[in-house]
Design a protein around this nucleic acid. Structure first.
Length: 195
DNA sequence: CATGGGATTGACT
DNA sequence: GTCAATCCCATGC
């Protein structure tokens, strides 16, 4: 994956990441759900401008933005748009591909559908932590690489778990995938192709 | 320096 | 359906 892939409008990258592989060590999974966040809307951590927490969002596209949510979970984002623009794509769910036994161990669960079907779950399954914040997704311990094939039809819906700008249709998922997070996306529209 | 609020999950009613 | 766990950091006094 080239850095130019990330230096594009956040909605394009959010769709384009569907089908891509996230890997960390022996574990890997295929992205089936993403959400877009951009400094122009108040649900984005970059909304309030550049702070210590949000600084990575304004940095080099293609790097990781990892932050702690609800005091418990580490959530993985890909920084996007040109340097200086605060925006990121939240990776919300993966289809587990490699390292299933290690994922089961880390998750304390065996069901395939419970390993990576949520942003907190996938970080736990892959061993992604706050220490990975700022790491390069092109050349770091946590990487994202090209899909083997196009992702297929993309379902577009509203983002979840937020209280501001809830109406924006900025949640993207592989239509019909059983590996997406809850609540299941209620598709406002379906677009023909992912990557 | 004190406070409050989450881009969630799992357990429980 | 409800609810608590738990920590980082932005905000405000």
């Amino acid at each position: 994956m080239r850095r130019g892939f990330y230096a594009r409008p956040v909605l394009e990258v959010a769709r384009g990441l569907l089908g891509c592989l996230v890997s960390h060590g022996a574990c890997a999974g295929r992205i089936v759900e993403t959400e877009a966040y951009h400094e122009c809307e108040p649900a984005c951590h970059a909304w309030a401008g550049r702070t210590r927490r949000s600084a990575p969002l304004f940095g080099l596209p293609g790097r990781a933005y990892v932050y702690r949510s609800y005091g418990i979970h580490a959530l993985l984002n890909a920084v996007v748009e040109p340097e200086g623009v605060g925006a990121a794509v939240l990776i919300r769910a993966l289809e587990p591909v490699e390292g299933l036994e290690l994922m089961r161990e880390r998750r304390g669960r065996t069901a395939l559908l419970e390993l990576c079907s949520g942003p907190g779950k996938l970080s736990q399954a892959l061993g992604i932590e706050l220490a990975h914040n700022g790491g390069d997704l092109l050349d770091g311990p946590v990487r994202i690489h090209q899909p083997a094939a196009a992702a297929g039809p993309v379902a577009v819906s509203e983002r979840i778990g937020i209280s501001k700008a809830v109406e924006l249709p900025w949640r993207f998922s592989v239509a019909g995938s059983p590996f997406v997070s809850r609540p299941r996306p209620r598709a406002l529209s379906v677009q023909p192709f992912g990557a």
